[in-house]
């Protein structure tokens, strides 16, 4: 696998889009969290009566969760990059050439999946250090309280990346694949929201607590593991919201990952390339 990854690195290092996206994402992660950090510190806390809702998202007890949640909004960037890299192979027909030259189909798809894993890992490491930095910046005592959310972030990143791999294998054409990826993500979010609203309605009308069913969809399962930390305003609405069954969302997120993995592999191994 090391040899295969070294070959992927040759493909990456000269790819200008990779460099741009990597820088943009790294800067983006810090910038995005900095915006949340300063808005909260300088604006929210200065509103008259803010004492009632006093809350610091980047205190060490919240920073792991806040950073993971906020970064989730630009997590589409690494998965888009992954998709570009993969569909480029189809565009240039280098997926064929790599196999003609002596990669097995299994090796080819395995290294792409490994890349999805590495991208998720690197994003997670970035989130870890960003959270650490803002934790210290907020002047609180170091703590790993809530660091599990960084692990959830990894799961979410991996889910996005594996969807990118799957869509690349199934659709092949760069423009079409990225288009479908955006539309699918948007559509799933809308459906998820509708389902969740329905769950609230059911709970209010006849007391049945179904949980948030919209969170059980393929991309929303890992999404739902990350939410903005509990705060006074959020707590006000808790009574009317259905219960978050984290273990169901977590199990489903793992299950979907397995499905994405097996589906992309199966398709690449048996298709005409």
């Amino acid at each position: 696998m090391t040899d295969l990854l070294k070959i992927e690195w040759i493909k990456l290092r000269k790819y200008i889009v990779f460099k741009l996206m990597a820088i943009f994402f790294a800067v983006g992660v810090v910038a995005l969290n900095y915006i949340v950090y300063t808005v909260n510190k300088n604006i929210v806390n200065n509103v008259p009566g803010a004492g009632l809702v006093s809350f610091s998202p980047y205190d060490f007890k919240n920073t792991w969760q806040s950073t993971s949640y906020a970064t989730g909004f630009i997590l589409i960037l690494p998965s888009l990059l992954l998709m570009l890299l993969f569909t480029n192979e189809y565009t240039y027909k280098t997926h064929r050439q790599n196999i003609i030259d002596g990669l097995s189909r299994r090796q080819f798809i395995s290294v792409k999946i490994a890349m999805a894993f590495i991208f998720a890992l690197v994003s997670t490491v970035l989130v870890f250090f960003t959270a650490l930095g803002f934790g210290f910046a907020s002047g609180t005592t170091f703590s790993f309280h809530g660091v599990v959310f960084v692990a959830y972030f990894f799961l979410k990143a991996l889910s996005y990346n594996m969807v990118a791999v799957l869509f690349s294998v199934l659709i092949r054409r760069t423009g079409f694949a990225t288009g479908v990826f955006f539309i699918y993500t948007g559509a799933e979010n809308i459906i998820s929201q509708l389902l969740n609203v329905l769950c609230i309605k059911i709970k209010r009308e006849d007391g049945t607590d179904l949980g948030n069913i919209g969170d059980y969809l393929p991309m929303n399962a890992s999404d739902s593991l990350l939410a903005f930390p509990d705060n006074p305003i959020k707590n006000l609405s808790k009574a009317i919201m259905p219960t978050d069954y984290t273990w169901i969302a977590f199990s489903l997120a793992i299950l979907y990952l397995v499905v994405f993995y097996l589906w992309s592999r199966w398709k690449f191994l048996k298709a005409d390339l």
Binding site: D3, K6, I7, I10, K11, K14, Y15, I16, N88, Y92, K93, T94, R96, Q97, N98, I99, I100, D101, G102, L103
Partner: peptide
């Protein structure tokens, strides 16, 4: 296949890379 040199249909290379790097990938594979 590693021991066969094959040109199939069209020249398939990474457009953004130079000749040397493209050949390096083939040689590594």
């Amino acid at each position: 296949r590693k021991k066969i040199g094959t040109l199939l249909e069209t020249p398939n290379f990474y457009h953004y890379m130079n000749a040397e790097d493209n050949l390096l990938i083939a040689a590594r594979i």
